[in-house]
Design a binder for these strands. Structure first.
Lengths: 196, 196
DNA sequence: AAAAAAATACTGATCGGTTAGTTTTTTCTT
DNA sequence: AAGAAAAAACTAACCGATCAGTATTTTTTT
């Protein structure tokens, strides 16, 4: 890998870690560069602004997470219930392997609101996510597997809410919380809650 | 009401609004005071620091929201299911009347992490909340109403996760989202998900 | 007139970002 | 393969703006 690409990767990695822990505005460029043992000026050889870091991370969030979730879930064999279960598993495994990236959008919402361009990028990703889950649930309703008094969009938002909220609680209680058991719990509750 | 108390109230109100929309670090003292048509110096006649605003809001969050939720739910007549349903209603109504205060802790988590004292105050409130819901669920299990393969703490976290996450999604989609229908949806899913 | 509330004017520190110059890496020439 | 030239990566010092916070003066309330 090229030197330049390598540096950009570690800067983005450090930025993500700090943004998630202290917020975008709570993290200074010096904080980031100190973490990777470079000085501030070096950042501007690779990125044109602090905000570009954020946009790059949003992009990564979409391609590595949301797009992959949609792709592999679509390809997954089985009916809607099995697909939703797979999506839940994908989420949990992704959260285990990339905790910072996974909580990124959830944790950043407030601060992303302070900039109209951040806001736009954020909503676009969420829209893609919701539309996909919503279409899965619609399928399930047509197939008669999922309760037909549920609005697919609202049920999809609930799916996302459980995931977002669970991650939130998990981060708050990381040290004294059995991740696997927790996943099993909210998966059971959600799946039983939507099926006929 | 005393003049001084009145001013303090509107400053706190403005601070809350801005913190929730732009984050703690994303909001400057000038932003707050511009909003209430005072100058910066005036703030320090009432509060000793920016962080004191935050602690005061956390306190308000606890006394007006969490403590009230616990008190009125405890007093509510009925079995555990009815109490949990009441708690869900309380949450929804509180969110409708005090949207900013309601989302405050959820939206502020990341930034609160940048300060150890914020972190401590935050976790204490969440702990109180979780312990209460957990004890309700334990009751329900003993009464044979709630599935006994659920861990009460983890189910309580799921309850909180749904609430947190739903608020999050609601704020993101305020304009094109029917609040009441949304509440009905995640309430149905959660309650069906935990009952035998 | 006394006391409280607010405005004004300021401090030092830190912010994101820029610059000039140095070191390291890559590319080209032989 | 060796060495020169070019390009890329990085540092350190610095910029103007803005930050939280303070000291002092003016205005308002009682």
């Amino acid at each position: 890998m090229k030197q330049s690409k390598k540096t950009e990767t570690i800067i983005l990695q450090a930025a993500l870690e700090l943004f998630v822990r202290k917020g975008y505005h709570g993290t200074s460029i010096n904080d980031i560069m100190k973490k990777v043992n470079f000085t501030k000026g070096a950042l501007y050889a690779h990125f044109k602004s602090k905000s570009e870091l954020l946009f790059k991370i949003i992009e990564e969030f979409k391609t590595k997470y949301i797009d992959q979730l949609i792709k592999t879930t679509t390809e997954h064999k089985g009916d809607t219930i099995e697909k939703l279960n797979y999506a839940l598993s994908f989420n949990s495994e992704f959260a285990l392997k990339n905790p910072d990236l996974c909580v990124f959008l959830t944790f950043m919402t407030t601060e992303l609101n302070s900039n109209i361009d951040f806001q736009y990028a954020l909503k676009a990703v969420y829209r893609t996510y919701m539309n996909f889950i919503s279409s899965l649930i619609s399928q399930g309703i047509r197939q008669g597997i999922i309760k037909n008094d549920l609005d697919p969009d609202l049920a999809a938002l609930t799916f996302m809410a459980i995931h977002d909220g669970s991650l939130h609680q998990w981060v708050l209680n990381r040290e004294h919380l059995d991740g696997r058991e927790y996943v099993r719990t909210f998966r059971t509750i959600f799946m039983k809650g939507i099926t006929k």
